[in-house]
């Protein structure tokens, strides 16, 4: 089906985009890679008056390395993230998770920032961004501000972005040498994650020195499994120890019920997938 009619703007700078958004008012939609927005427009579940395409803004694209962080432009495609040596080296969990997003065609168009701003709790990049303590640079009429991931994800499909703001880039602290795995569980390859777990580990002498664990689709926002992280510290990599630490993976989460899973089953998945993610990360 064809979308309802809309006006189209393709600003060439972030500042111009912010101005266009301000002028267009509340019925404007930001178009990133379009891989979530286009189906919504085609099904006419949304009918914005103006679509603001960020695809012609060079600043939003690319990955740069700073001393202690990777800075990923919001319009960097999933494919570019997957291919970037720097992401593999300094944010392996993100590389792992990005590889599981949708399918190759969609990864060619879909963008890192777009996924985060869309804030679908089943999206695979939210939990890794949260787990790696990423922070988001946001541009608005009043200039730029930075929001940590923990505050960026507000609710189901809702972020700290105001209607007239644009996500510019995401700063991911370097986790150089960390081992990571993203364990995704879904009904078919194309389906969104029923539950998924991302684990990043800093290993020292065969034991876990530090752990970061994020859960996908266990709440209306991504969830950090702090209890698991704490329980893993100093643990040797044994099946027993990991299973023990993963037992309370869903603590603090408030999993929902949908066609694929109820809360109890999600809790079970969180437990099992956490153990598997940690085990796999430790082995890499």
């Amino acid at each position: 089906m064809i979308p309802a009619p809309f006006d189209y703007a393709a600003p060439s700078t972030v500042e111009e985009a912010v101005t266009v958004l301000a002028d267009a008012g509340e019925d404007a939609k930001v178009l990133g890679g379009g891989q979530s927005l286009m189906p919504v427009l085609r099904m006419r579940l949304a009918a914005p008056t103006t679509v603001v395409d960020l695809g012609r803004i060079p600043e939003l694209r690319g990955i740069r390395e700073e001393a202690d962080a990777l800075v990923i432009g919001a319009m960097t495609t999933h494919d570019e993230v997957c291919r970037a040596e720097s992401v593999r080296a300094h944010a392996a969990l993100l590389a792992e998770a990005t590889h599981t997003v949708a399918d190759p065609q969609i990864r060619h168009r879909g963008t890192f920032g777009g996924s985060l701003a869309h804030a679908d709790p089943a999206g695979d990049l939210l939990a890794p961004a949260l787990a790696l303590d990423a922070s988001m640079t946001i541009a608005g009429p009043a200039g730029r501000r930075t929001v940590p991931a923990a505050e960026f994800f507000v609710d189901f499909f809702t972020t700290a972005l105001a209607e007239n703001e644009v996500l510019v880039e995401v700063r991911v602290p370097k986790h150089t040498g960390w081992q990571a795995h993203y364990e995704k569980f879904n009904r078919v390859a194309q389906a969104w994650s029923t539950v998924a777990v991302g684990a990043a580990l800093r290993m020292e002498g065969g034991a876990i020195a530090e752990a970061k664990v994020g859960l996908t689709n266990m709440d209306t926002v991504p969830v950090r499994a702090r209890t698991v992280e704490a329980a893993l510290i100093g643990r040797p990599v044994t099946a027993e120890a990991i299973r023990e630490a993963a037992r309370d993976a869903a603590a603090g989460a408030n999993p929902g019920t949908d066609a694929n899973a109820d809360a109890a089953y999600r809790t079970q998945l969180a437990r099992v997938l956490t153990a598997r993610a940690v085990t796999a990360a430790a082995r890499t």
Binding site: Q35, P39, D103, Q105, R109
Partner: peptide, 23 residues
């Protein structure tokens, strides 16, 4: 309508895309 089937796949600047999900 949902970019699941891939029947519309073409190459855009050398990479495969679903042409139903690109304006």
């Amino acid at each position: 309508d949902t970019s699941n089937c891939g029947a519309c796949t073409v190459h855009l600047n050398g990479r495969s895309v679903k042409s139903c999900s690109v304006l």
